[in-house]
Write a protein that binds this DNA or RNA. Structure first.
Lengths: 355, 355
DNA sequence: TTGTAAGCGTTATCAA
DNA sequence: TTGATAACGCTTACAA
């Protein structure tokens, strides 16, 4: 198209091939070692004259070192592996976003592996990422297969678990304070006058955050029973393809409630959506017919029904802190595994007003 | 024997070090070349006896080749760079999901770079990804800075553009058939009886999909004016932090409508959410007060107000096809750039019933 | 059919 | 302070 471009790239292969450290060395009339030193040990050990020559050559050739070659040599790749259970889950995405930012700021790139909720791929994910020499892992997995992550840890790679603990795994763990959050949400419903509560979750088994939340809910009920007359609570596991089951669960919830007010605590955004679907099928209204507080403050929560009351997780922070923990370990911090719990925030909207 | 060797063979660190091709060669009593051949040229050129010995050794040492070293040697990395404008946008995530699946199935890993809607980071993204020797790019960027992508293409790396075209860029392009989709949505509103239409979009300039949709909307209005008495249409650009402006736009929409029915076509899920917020502020109801059809069929669309009518994009397909195009190019396919347009699907719900 | 050796782009260890 | 040179883990002529 333009002759200018053609001129600029006159040496035939110049535009196609990345320039290497050897090119720079030749251009500057020094050895590769000197160029490498200039790059890695910046100011030290360099004659000003030589330094500037190298600097000029680097600029002239638009040289930047190959991370691949560096990785091979140093054994460090500036790569961090991120495994998420399900990119479709807004929570995962939000965390991903926070983590990505922190990693990039620290000069690391993120390699993403999405499990698509298939726990069998967990091992595969860790293996692939390990092969690429990622320096550490941020894991938000299903947790069925602790062995995979343990394997990673045994290879000396630091691991940070987000939201979901693995049994007996020695790793930093960053999560919402689930117990506190459940307490917050359930208490809010009680304060609003609801007395017959139902905790709705995805299958709880082996997913630590679900277990924690359910356990906290049970504890809340038994702890509060004394002070709050008529308070009752049950739990229900909702399955993806059992809409009817959920409908029935809601029916019996109202039945049990009798004259008392029934309400739901939903354990994440996915479940909240299912509950919303059920409510629509039944023709019931949030707040008046059944109260609701749901985990995860999605952007759409304010516009569903009278507005859904939610417990917001500090997702961005979770991601940032998880990445931060990892980066600290990569910088050599040697501490026993930490548990970092962040508190949730209650956002009261129409769905928790008996109206 | 240096300390390194000692470390290697000490039982403690034994589990920590990945085994290399040299280890396998030693174990099998053959040369590295033979192991390499076994790996790369499978059946050919191998004595059964030797082949099995290698196979056993590989299994025994749990060996897998280092993609980094392979990349360095071959110049191919089995990596694909994915740049998304905004991981927060559900559309981006959905595409990401489709693309990731296809890439993984083909043995490629995805390197993710999120722009966070900051167009200045586009160059940075491409540079970082290029440095890691990604073999190709899937780009869903803002499109301000075509030079970045062009740069990539000039380096001989195939590029696929998703949803957003870059001006004058020679690359495969995969997208929704925006013109058809707008027609579908607008016609639906007209059929439902709405006559005063407003197309609401994020700032249109330089983002091809937004431009296409707006242009299609304008065309629809002028084309239909003759047959549909009283049909009028305008466009409005909504800014993130100008909620008041949007409120006013809705006000004047109703004013202009007079006795005719007013409706909105919203150009993506983000805008739809903003419109929902405005409607809530104004105390208006979808369908009855103002009709709506919105781009992007999110999971929450059915539960906002009377259900939001949407135009669903085949997001998964978009991602899959984009990845497919790239993989074809990587396999050597040499064709002029293709444009692949997929049609949207209208999902009619309460928000387009004047009720 | 198999082995030897060079080299991909770096960094690190030596001498000089 | 700088420069050869040997790795890092792999592939691939070229020899045997």
């Amino acid at each position: 198209m333009n002759a200018k471009k053609a001129l600029r790239t006159s040496p035939v292969a110049a535009s196609a091939a990345r320039s290497t450290i050897a090119d720079v060395a030749r251009e500057a009339g020094v050895s590769k070692a000197t160029v490498s030193r200039f790059l890695n040990h910046r100011e030290r050990l360099l004659t000003p004259d030589i330094a500037t020559r190298v600097e000029v050559a680097i600029a002239a050739l638009d040289y930047s070192p190959s991370p691949m070659a560096q990785a091979l040599k140093r054994g460090r790749s500036r790569l961090i592996g991120l495994v998420v259970a399900d990119v479709t889950n807004p929570f995962s995405v939000a965390v991903l976003r926070g983590a990505e930012k922190a990693c990039q700021d620290a000069g690391y790139l993120l390699m993403l592996f999405n499990l698509g909720n298939d726990s069998r791929r967990e091992t595969e994910a860790i293996a692939a990422l390990t092969a690429y020499q990622v320096e550490g892992f941020i894991l938000n997995t299903l947790g069925r297969d602790a062995s995979a992550a343990t394997h990673a840890a045994r290879h000396g790679k630091p691991v940070v678990l987000v939201d979901r603990r693995h049994q007996g795994m020695q790793a930093d763990f960053v999560s919402l304070d689930n117990a506190g959050a459940v307490q917050l949400g359930a208490q809010h419903l009680v304060d609003a006058g609801y007395r017959e509560l139902l905790f709705v979750s995805e299958p709880v088994r082996d997913v630590s955050s679900r277990e924690d939340r359910e356990a906290a809910f049970r504890r809340f009920i038994s702890d509060s029973a004394a002070e709050v007359p008529g308070l009752q609570g049950r739990t229900y596991e909702s399955d993806v393809d059992d809409a009817r089951g959920l409908d029935q669960a809601l029916h019996s919830l109202r039945q049990r409630a009798g004259k008392r007010l029934p309400a739901i605590v939903s354990s994440n955004a996915v479940v909240t959506l299912r509950v919303a679907a059920a409510m629509a099928r039944l023709g019931w209204h949030f707040g008046a017919d059944v109260g609701l507080v749901g985990f995860d403050d999605t952007e759409w929560a304010p516009y569903v029904g009278p507005g859904l009351s939610t417990i917001a997780q500090p997702t961005d922070e979770l991601g940032r802190i998880a990445a931060g923990c990892l980066l600290e370990r990569l910088r050599g911090l040697d501490l026993p595994p930490r548990q970092i719990l962040l508190s949730g925030q209650l956002l009261a909207r129409g769905s928790s007003i008996p109206g």
